[in-house]
């Protein structure tokens, strides 16, 4: 069980690092708008490569009645 002499101080250190990371995230405004970040992945940057490809296929998901 001698390993806990390393593991417990390590976990304390990791916790301090986690706290530091969290504080950094809050200060760099990552928690300011939680609603938008969740859906950001759904939007394509207009003019980006993937957006153009998608445009050409004309979104087969919608209007697919014809």
């Amino acid at each position: 069980m001698e390993v806990i002499w390393v593991l417990i101080p390590l976990s304390v250190l990791l916790m301090l690092l986690a706290v530091r990371a969290f504080v950094w995230a809050v200060r760099s405004r990552q928690f300011d708008d939680l609603d938008r970040e969740a859906s950001r992945i759904l939007f394509e940057e207009p003019g980006s490569e993937s957006a153009r490809v998608d445009k050409e296929s004309e979104h087969p998901r919608r209007g697919g009645h014809d």
Binding site: M15, F22, V26, R27, F31
Partner: peptide, 25 residues
């Protein structure tokens, strides 16, 4: 308000992470 919100989020994050670690020990 934004400042207050950030301060209170920071406090919650620190206490949350800390409380879980302490509980484990």
């Amino acid at each position: 308000h934004e400042q207050q919100r950030r301060r209170s989020l920071t406090a919650i994050g620190i206490s949350g992470i800390g409380a879980m670690q302490v509980m484990m020990l």
